[in-house]
Design a protein around this nucleic acid. Structure first.
Lengths: 259, 259
DNA sequence: CGATAGATTGATGCAGCTCAACGCGTGTGG
DNA sequence: CCACACGCGTTGAGCTGCATCAATCTATCG
């Protein structure tokens, strides 16, 4: 029977086609076909492993997770964090296997939706569009991360992450006071951003000492959002011009750093 | 009329469904439906621009191109290079707009295939699989790049790129003697790898002085492939252990650098 | 209450960025 | 045909941001 919907269900991709989500406006031509099994995943355990057959996607109900990619040579890197409402294992190209692994950052609850049923549902145009839109957001995220890691300085990268986390948080519970609980370790953050855990720790302390945030362990509050945004945009600390011009002409590429 | 196929056509995704490609074994249930218009793109010009409606994909016939991504804040970064046979503008998630831009590195010739006809053709399962496989390779490439930029040292990154370029080259003309012509500038390489052009230049010189390669301007030859591979795998220079273990257990993530 | 994992902080070093000068190769105009 | 300029590449010298190594502190849990 419907459990009337967890808070995460309100943001879930599948909310309009899932009985678990409770009463929702249905989508035209998309039947309420889903009543996914709930699966518990304990802290540090895999939701799924990279390279295994991708038969299921996992909307996240409670808890949080990190995506981890392991390159052919065995280098591992965190490629993203997921919060309730996100769908884990959603690959854009119907891969036969998972392209990354997902590991719970805390005891978590996920729904198990077979990709088979997902594919069926995606035959309905409006639902398909929703899913594709989510995939596009994921791809955009990865690209932003690549640029960050490839051409921004450590403080900018961290500021970016904090702003992103706060934004996601706000999108979920509407909590705009900037209070965050970091489910991931400093090591995970460092891996995502291409830094070391010491650097992350130091930067958090520095941000705090400058009044941008407050931190104690994994409890963090954003105090000066605009200040953080300025760090992200690099208007602040380093001898580095504002820059950033669009509409590239010819052979140009010009990051700000080289402008 | 069929032009009997350029060399690039032999590797093209569309070779089995395209009249331009000349005689090819047809794919079951996939008609020879394509006879794309040829378009010339001059050095430094866009094949298409990021953010514009993605109505066409462009198999590359002659020349080469770079993909450039510009983040919302205006930071630009090269995200990849394309060689003849690659399909430019192929987005995994049928985006309404191009997620990156593509710029010709030299005077180039592309075929123009409407995504509409592409979608039609993809209804045939065997063809669809081919295309999806290509998309997966692209995604994998981006992830490898992310890991490289995020956690490998400059020499490894460059070695990786050279090996990759040589591999692609070999896949095309079977030329396994390691001779490459770099169509892209040092600046482009630096952008891709998250380095500066000076570092790239210095590293190429260093590689050459150690006998791994020879370089003169944009002509490059790989002399010691295994040596380069060793640099890539980081068995060589830095005080950094071999590492790389698979089958991650719980909360671990462990890049070699931090192991 | 000891043990263990995570986080903070400090001291030190170096890889790679920055700034700068120069070399090469190609095109352009006198 | 040479002079010059301009884009691209190379090389050097110096500096610094971040990694590295190491010690200590804090939380959590058996």
């Amino acid at each position: 029977m419907p459990d009337s919907g967890a808070p995460a269900c309100l943001l879930c991709l599948f909310r309009h086609v899932c009985h678990n989500a409770g009463p929702q406006a249905p989508l035209p031509h998309a039947p309420m076909a889903l009543q996914p099994e709930l699966v518990e995943v304990r802290t540090g355990e895999h939701v799924f492993r990279q390279g295994r057959p991708a038969l299921t996607v996992y909307p996240l109900r409670h808890g949080s997770a990190k995506q981890v990619y392991e390159s052919p040579l065995g280098w591992r890197q965190v490629t993203g964090f997921s919060l309730p409402g996100d769908v884990l294992g959603l690959e854009p190209h119907e891969g036969p296997v998972y392209g990354t692994g997902a590991i719970a950052l805390q005891d978590a609850m996920v729904c198990a939706v077979s990709v088979e049923s997902l594919r069926t549902l995606m035959q309905a145009a409006p639902f398909r569009e929703t899913v594709l839109e989510a995939m596009r957001r994921n791809a955009e995220r990865e690209r932003v991360l690549l640029v960050a890691v490839g051409s921004m300085r450590a403080p900018q990268r961290l500021a970016m992450l904090l702003l992103d986390l706060a934004g996601e948080q706000a999108r979920r519970d509407g909590n705009r006071d900037g209070a965050l609980t970091l489910a991931m370790s400093r090591t995970d953050i460092a891996s995502l951003l291409g830094l070391t855990l010491e650097t992350v720790s130091r930067l958090l302390s520095r941000f705090a000492s400058v009044g941008l945030i407050s931190v104690r362990q994994r409890h963090l509050r954003i105090i000066d959002r605009d200040g953080l945004a300025a760090v992200y945009a690099d208007l602040d600390p380093a001898p580095r011009q504002a820059a950033a011009r669009s509409e590239a002409y010819g052979g140009e590429f010009g990051e700000p750093r080289l402008a």
